[in-house]
Design a protein around this nucleic acid. Structure first.
Length: 904
DNA sequence: CTCCAAACATCCGCCATGTCT
DNA sequence: AAAGACATGGCGGATGTTTGG
């Protein structure tokens, strides 16, 4: 698509250069101009006025101040303007005439907090202008969306704000209309942006020219700025991709609008459904708009005018409305200026699909089960194991495909309702850790004639999520032909505060599907299924060998058996190397296996398993092997277990072993997971607020090497209206008829706020007083220690986590192993079993919560009131592939309470 | 410190397809 | 209705840059 970013006119850098001091590593999806007059006032007006939640506001931007008051470089915002305590605000300043335009960048995906404080630089302090320290500023895309008392002048997308042109003759008014031509005034009746900044006008508008050297595709027309969502002069042409290209130059020109360093608003141009309802698919402001809450005063957008490719809010209109598709915006522009709004509708105005407020849904980091007794979310057709993701600077590389050439297919079984549901899709991690949204990849909405699936896009907690309908008429089956994969630049993501993952070589992802099924009483059951891993790098598809399946994952220390590997890119020179690493990542053993080259093919290797280095081991030894085609062309490590001669090996599914790390349960934090991730294993969950652990009946996971990635957690039921993170899921055990607890029917019920007790008979979390409590202690190696081996078929007790502060560290948030539920050990302090013992006793890691597999064993003992302390120690014992060792964490006592069973 | 290769990020070109004139 | 222009989508591959050994 066309982008003014591609204009390489060096004279166009004005604003960029002046703002280049800003560490624009973050993104700035949109820029807004605000006018405040005078400065040095608290623009929040009434301090007691409740602030809108961060989500209620859109991206940041630029704030106009009288020049004399901000004749210094703004260096930072404090506190974080994004509602994310881990993020800083970076502000640049452009002085022009009587205004200074402040640029505020933000980390990708984060919404801007409604109120920020801008801290002047040291230079400013030197001038004794301390009065401007902690200058409070309210940021809002438009008055109608935010706190009254201050109004934005205009706002626009980064494309239009980029330093594209120095052509002063270019008006930033389009002939028909201009998003900049807002008559908004400052609280004091100041000027409009139009009046203030001719240069910005130019910049914002861009110039209709193509710089030499740019792609022939590049052309800048007024349309490109007139409607940020009008990527083409011919909007009616072939449906546009939600993603536009950006040029490399952009990345070399730091600016107020770190376009180069920022993510372009992914989708451009809303689209209409057959009913003429406009759906937008821009991610740019999705964060903010997702947060639109009709219940919030002033959160309703004003009048909306829709053009073929853009949606606009008109001024002074109390309610949003849709303009008929045939409405000519030009006829409106003359009389009334209006704002361009990101073509992403707030969820509450998006018809169909998931109507459940995002806040009521389980966070994406939470593990969810693939099935319950009643429902099952299945990936009928897995995606190809290679898909070259595209960068923002590239054109789309299409949707993820199936190996057969089609597309992945997902189906929800067991749903008897008549209402269609929304199937959510996002990109998750594919490493050995617990599934969570991938920091370096985002799902990318693919449109076009080849795409048959209607999709909607939203952003949930910085993660782009596609939503497609699951309709009864299609047997709740959906072909995923609209999901591409966007690669975010490593540097951008790694610079985020709080981001612990690295992007380099972190190129494997999974498609994660979620569905939320409404239940009587307002709750909903949430299911999740994750695809097998998809390699997203460019070269891997052609060069890197990939093991897809192995016919065995273990043998005795003697080796000698034949193992058949199937996969891709095997060559005659392919070698198979077995390695063993210590828990801290040090490789202590490496041996090349013998490959039967006569039998082997391009997609199949016949390997003779080498003997283990130590035949006298008394416990199973977990090692890895990989296929290597040559220097640095090796597959992902595969798992293999050597069993001791004397001890009979207990065969378990690989999923059990690998999901929690080879040594068992691994604390999320030790793995660098975000504090928001509270898991133990995908099959269980403890929420820091009110934890619960559950056990779900086991269901066969998908076959194949990646079956271990199948998230199988207890179903989580969230009542509508519950607050996402504020509310807490609570585990309830379904009584099997007559209120008799069924060990195989435990589910997690999101109870929302404490004031919102679940409707399923469970006590409100936070009132576990009547329930026995227990203390569980984690071992130094993150293993849950148990006093004894519970019978494997006992029902799982319901766990309740008490007294967790929100800010509790990951250790506390860490999912307690399902076995925590082993209430009978109370008041026993559970000690970790030695790895050896654990492995020999039961390869299902004791530290894992295995709700779905329902290792009832642990749970079925009679509940004994008491306390179990969960203690986390020696996390470095956690074993991860590739040396992804866990880091030590402080011990955090975790108090769990048993909750009475309840059913849905 | 340099060198080198891998990985990353971007650029280039081509073809297919769709819409508009 | 057909043809041409123009645009985007969807690639494959090349190339420049960064990073790590």
């Amino acid at each position: 698509m066309t982008s003014v970013y591609e204009d390489k006119d060096p004279n166009a850098l004005g604003l960029a250069e002046e703002l280049s001091q800003v560490s624009c590593q973050d993104e700035l999806d949109f820029a807004y101009l605000f006018e405040y007059d005078p400065p040095c006032v608290d623009f929040t007006g009434d301090q007691d006025e409740p602030s809108l939640p961060p989500q209620a506001l859109s991206s940041p931007s630029s704030v106009a101040y009288p020049l004399e008051e901000v004749a210094y470089d703004i260096k930072s915002c404090s506190p974080s303007p994004y509602g994310d305590p881990t993020s800083d605000g970076l502000v640049g300043c452009e002085h022009h005439e009587n205004r200074a335009y402040l640029g505020l960048s933000r980390p990708a995906g984060l919404a801007l907090s409604p109120r920020i404080e801008i801290t002047p630089s040291r230079e400013h302090y030197n001038h004794g202008r301390d009065s401007l320290q902690a200058h409070p500023v309210n940021i809002s895309p438009r008055p109608t969306l935010t706190v009254p008392g201050h109004e934005c002048l205009a706002y626009r997308e980064p494309q239009c704000l980029s330093p594209a042109s120095s052509n002063s003759s270019t008006s930033w008014h389009s002939e028909s209309f201009s998003p900049w031509a807002s008559p908004c005034v400052s609280p004091s009746g100041g000027h409009t942006a139009v009046d203030l900044c001719p240069r910005l006008q130019n910049i914002h508008t861009g110039s209709p020219r193509t710089s030499p050297g740019t792609s022939p595709r590049t052309s800048i027309t007024e349309d490109s700025c007139q409607g940020p969502r009008s990527p083409s002069p011919r909007p009616g042409s072939r449906s546009t991709s939600p993603q536009g290209k950006r040029t490399y130059d952009m990345y070399k020109t730091p600016s107020l609008f770190p376009g180069p360093r920022s993510r372009s608003p992914s989708p451009h141009g809303g689209h209409e459904d057959p009913n003429g309802v406009l759906y937008s698919h821009s991610s740019a402001l999705v964060d903010g708009l997702n947060g639109f809450n009709p219940a919030l005063p002033g959160s309703n957008p004003a009048k909306i005018i829709k053009t073929s490719n853009a949606t606009f809010y008109r001024e002074s209109q109390p309610e949003p409305y849709l303009v008929p598709p045939d409405l000519d915006v030009k006829t409106q522009s003359g009389a009334e200026p209006f704002f361009v709004i990101p073509p992403m509708w707030p969820n509450h105005v998006m018809p169909g699909i998931c109507r459940i407020p995002v806040a009521s849904l389980p966070p994406l980091e939470w593990p969810l089960p693939t099935c319950t007794d009643q429902y099952e979310l299945c990936i009928e057709v897995q995606p190809k194991q290679h898909h070259r993701a595209h960068y923002e600077t590239e054109g789309s590389r299409g949707a993820v495909k199936a190996p057969t050439g089609g597309h992945p297919v997902v189906q929800l079984h067991g749903y008897k309702g008549k209402e269609p549901l929304g199937l959510q899709i996002f990109i998750g991690t594919a490493d050995e850790r617990i599934l969570k949204p991938h920091a370096f990849y985002q799902v990318h909405r693919i449109t076009g004639k080849t795409v048959t699936t209607t999709s909607y896009e939203k952003v949930i907690s910085s993660t782009k999520v596609l939503e497609i309908p699951l309709e009864p008429k299609n047997n709740m089956r959906a072909m995923i032909d609209c999901a591409g994969i966007l690669k975010l630049r490593n540097a951008d993501i790694e610079l985020r505060k709080g981001e612990t993952d690295i992007g380099r070589k972190n190129t494997r992802v999974r498609l994660v599907f979620r569905v939320h099924i409404p239940q009587p009483g307002g709750q909903h059951v949430s299911l999740q299924a994750a695809s097998h891993a998809i390699e997203c790098s460019q070269r891997s598809a052609h060069e890197l060998p990939m093991v897809e399946t192995q016919d065995t994952d273990g043998c005795s220390v003697l080796g000698g058996q034949q193992m058949i590997l199937s996969g891709q890119n095997f060559t005659a020179d392919s070698k198979v190397v077995f390695i063993e690493k210590t828990h801290d990542g040090q490789q202590i053993w490496e041996v090349e296996a013998t490959v039967d080259k006569d039998k082997s093919q391009a997609n199949m290797l016949f390997v003779e398993i080498p003997p283990y280095r130590d035949r006298s081991i008394s416990h199973a030894a977990k090692v890895n092997f990989y296929v290597i085609n040559g220097k640095r062309k090796r597959s992902q490590p595969q798992h293999f277990t050597y069993t001791p001669l004397a001890v009979p090996s207990i065969k378990t599914e690989p999923v059990d072993e690998y999901e929690s790390g080879s040594l068992g349960f691994v604390m999320p934090q030790a793995l660098g997971m975000s504090p928001q991730s509270f898991y133990s294993s995908p099959r269980g969950l403890i929420h820091p607020d009110n934890c619960l652990v559950s056990c779900q009946q086991g269901r066969p996971s998908l076959p194949g090497p990646d079956s271990r990635f199948q998230q199988q957690s207890p179903a989580i039921v969230y009542p509508r209206g519950a607050k996402g993170l504020s509310g807490s899921p609570t585990l309830y055990q379904q009584p099997a008829g007559g209120g008799v607890p069924d060990p195989h029917r435990s589910v997690l019920v999101h109870t929302g706020s404490p004031a919102q007790p679940p409707t399923m008979g469970a006590p409100p979390h936070g009132s576990p007083s009547s329930q026995p409590s227990s203390i569980i202690q984690f071992s130094p190696t993150n293993h849950l220690l148990r006093g004894g081996a519970p019978p494997p078929t006992e029902p799982q007790p319901i766990m309740y986590c008490e007294g967790y502060p929100q800010g509790v560290t990951a250790a506390a948030r860490s999912p307690a192993p399902a076995q925590v539920a082993n209430a009978q050990q109370y008041p026993t302090v559970i000690q970790q079993q030695p790895y050896v013992q654990k492995m020999t006793k039961n390869r299902t890691s004791p530290g894992q919560m295995e709700p779905q597999r329902c290792s009832p064993s642990e749970e079925q003992r009679p509940s004994v009131p008491g306390r179990v302390t969960v203690k986390q120690e020696n996390l470095d014992q956690a074993y991860l592939d590739d040396g992804q060792g866990a880091s030590a964490n402080e011990n955090l006592p975790l108090t769990l309470h048993l909750m009475p069973p309840c059913s849905i």
